[in-house]
């Protein structure tokens, strides 16, 4: 009798769980739906007092109009964002990967001091460093340049820390075999260690790419001229100005998230791993 009741009970909680999940999932998808819906609406339908579930007319000219609109430097800002995200991702992987490997494997006198100095900077939130960083970059004359947007982001203490921890756990025997074959640290790193660390590199890489593509505060203070806007700054400028066609603004946002949604579709496994690793390590 008791068993029967508990079976029925577990079926009820099962249903309750699925209903809760389904309702929450629906709620989480609403903003995506609104984004797509509004991107294909006509301006007059968007402003009408009645709510439209779907566009009465699917307006595809929002997309072509977006790239013809001289007020939104859409193509340029997408290009900037792509350039910045790709170079920053590759740069962070190379700089932090090499630094992390050196700290994990090459014995020298100051290696612990260097490691603790790098780790200590993790405790300082970016909110605190952004004013001094801005002063530094403007002294160098890097305002509104790709250099100013890319270079300060290349040195990531967290990624360096994580790479060091990861390489500490890398099987030493494989490296020793490479050493016997005459490969130095440099050769071992590129020919043996990197090809065997694909998952970890992919995890850090995808997370860095997402962070770089979506970054806002730094591009906002550095990217003063239109030519140096990232896609986030272009969107933000037209959102806060409110002088633009709203449907076109939604189309711009849709275009801006498509690269990341595609990444999500194909690389989700690595992104999840990246979140698991970076989340516990720090910000």
């Amino acid at each position: 009798m008791a068993i029967v009741r508990s079976k029925r009970q577990s079926r009820i909680t099962g249903w309750a769980r699925y209903s809760a999940l389904a309702a929450a999932a629906l709620l989480f998808l609403v903003p995506f739906y609104l984004l797509v819906r509004s991107a294909f609406m006509r301006e007059q339908d968007l402003g009408s007092p009645d709510y439209h579930w779907l566009p009465p007319v699917w307006e595809t000219s929002n997309l072509t109009g977006l790239f013809d609109n001289p007020a939104i430097p859409m193509a340029r800002s997408l290009l900037n964002s792509g350039l910045i995200a790709v170079t920053q991702t590759v740069g962070v992987l190379v700089v932090s990967g090499l630094a992390g490997y050196g700290l994990a494997r090459i014995p020298y006198r100051w290696s612990n001091a260097v490691f603790y100095t790098i780790t200590a900077t993790l405790l300082i939130p970016a909110a605190v460093t952004f004013v001094p960083s801005f002063v530094l970059v403007s002294t160098l004359g890097w305002i509104s340049t790709l250099r100013g947007l890319i270079i300060p982001g290349l040195f990531q203490a967290l990624a360096t820390f994580l790479f060091r921890q990861f390489f500490l756990g890398f099987p030493k025997e494989i490296e020793e075999a490479a050493f016997i074959d005459g490969l130095g640290y440099w050769g071992t790193f590129w020919k043996i260690v990197v090809p065997n660390s694909f998952g970890f590199v992919a995890a850090i890489g995808t997370i860095t790419f997402i962070g770089s593509w979506n970054a806002f505060l730094w591009p906002l203070v550095i990217g003063r001229d239109q030519e140096s806007w990232t896609v986030q700054i272009a969107l933000s400028t037209f959102l806060t100005a409110q002088s633009v066609q709203v449907s076109q603004l939604f189309m711009a946002a849709l275009v801006a998230i498509v690269p990341l949604l595609l990444m999500f579709l194909f690389l989700q496994r690595w992104i999840v791993e990246g979140v698991e690793r970076t989340g516990i390590g720090g910000d």
Binding site: A25, P31, L34, I210, F216, V246, L249, L261
Partner: peptide, 20 residues
């Protein structure tokens, strides 16, 4: 589904929240 918004920027979310 719950993880997907992580791919969105605050700017895009602000846009949907504010304008829609």
């Amino acid at each position: 589904v719950f993880f997907l918004p992580t791919a969105c920027s605050y700017v895009v979310a602000a846009l949907v929240w504010k304008m829609s």
